[in-house]
């Protein structure tokens, strides 16, 4: 039986796993992080009653269902996230939406959280916008997507561990929106219903239908090659309406990668969609 035996992978097995991940998600594993493959896949290898990474690769080759390869890809994705991550940025999104609503009264705004992981990001948006309703702000439509079926299943269930629920979420929000149940915290179904979850691969799929006013794609691009970042930014540009906003992670930028976006003059850290070659302010005026 497998147990304490080291889960060593031959170079060929590692290459095949890395190629599978890149083919499915566009993510590349740098050579110096190849050890991550073994660590990340160890639980799956054990669970399947296998002994080594090579045996897992062999199982992948003969497996006729996509299920095992999906489990491998899910295990390799970094799904780190938290509620109200970069809280100040979320507040800016709320303020920007408020201004957009004033410019276009009567139209319901549309937001897309791309790479939403286990749902903390779109749920934070849903909580924030619901809280802002009392000040007269209308809640936008929120579409949230991820390539990982496992992450989406967790997001739809809205169940979080005690560690997850305490990251970024204030105790007041926790008790207003979640119910404790056997060590887990379950989101109020009404809150979960404010978000529409869909599976979507940024590396391969076109943008979801319709244009969005604000698109968040935070802490996703950093795992892609520069070439793929450009391509994904083109997809995001096609999804954002002119004058709409793009939000990236704290360490990410469009600079040098896309001329569809310029830093927003009004909201620090956010990017505004422009027609390449058109100054941002004229796009803004054209909207009215």
């Amino acid at each position: 039986m497998p147990g304490s035996a080291p889960i060593q992978g031959s170079a060929a097995a590692m290459n095949m796993i890395a190629a599978l991940l890149e083919q499915r998600t566009g993510q590349q594993i740098a050579a110096n992080r190849a050890w991550r493959i073994e660590t990340a896949l160890k639980p799956l290898i054990r669970e399947r009653g296998l002994a080594t990474l090579d045996e897992l690769v062999a199982a992948l080759v003969v497996s006729r269902t996509p299920e095992l390869s999906e489990m491998v890809v899910d295990a390799l994705l970094n799904q780190e996230t938290s509620f109200f991550r970069d809280a100040a940025v979320l507040e800016s999104i709320g303020d920007a939406a408020w201004e957009m609503q004033a410019e276009m009264p009567g139209r319901r705004l549309r937001l897309w959280s791309a790479g939403c992981s286990t749902g903390q990001e779109p749920l934070s948006l849903a909580m924030m916008f619901t809280e802002r309703e009392s000040k007269g702000q209308s809640p936008p439509e929120i579409i949230a997507t991820d390539v990982s079926g496992a992450a989406l299943a967790r997001a739809r269930a809205g169940r979080y561990s005690q560690f997850e629920i305490q990251r970024g979420l204030s105790v007041l929000r926790m008790i207003s929106w979640f119910e404790g149940s056997g060590g887990e915290w379950v989101a109020n179904p009404e809150l979960v219903r404010k978000v529409q979850y869909r599976q979507h691969n940024l590396a391969g799929d076109g943008p979801p239908p319709g244009r969005f006013d604000i698109v968040l794609c935070r802490n996703v691009l950093l795992y892609f090659s520069a070439a793929l970042r450009r391509k994904v930014l083109d997809t995001l540009a096609a999804a954002v309406r002119p004058g709409g906003l793009l939000v990236l992670g704290a360490g990410e930028t469009v600079i040098g990668l896309s001329d569809h976006f310029v830093p927003s003059e009004r909201f620090r850290g956010l990017y505004q969609a422009v027609d390449p070659g058109t100054p941002a302010h004229s796009t803004r005026l054209a909207l009215r």
């Binding site: 938290s82 005690q162 305490q166 204030s170 105790v171 926790m174």
Partner: peptide, 28 residues
């Protein structure tokens, strides 16, 4: 439990950490 958490807030606590906690929890 919710009853404890509510009581703490009513008594004037600003935040609430459920043990066990880790660095991220505390920092957050």
């Amino acid at each position: 439990g919710m009853a404890y958490i509510r009581a703490a807030i009513e008594a004037g606590a600003d935040e609430y950490v459920m043990k066990p906690f880790d660095r991220e929890t505390l920092e957050s």
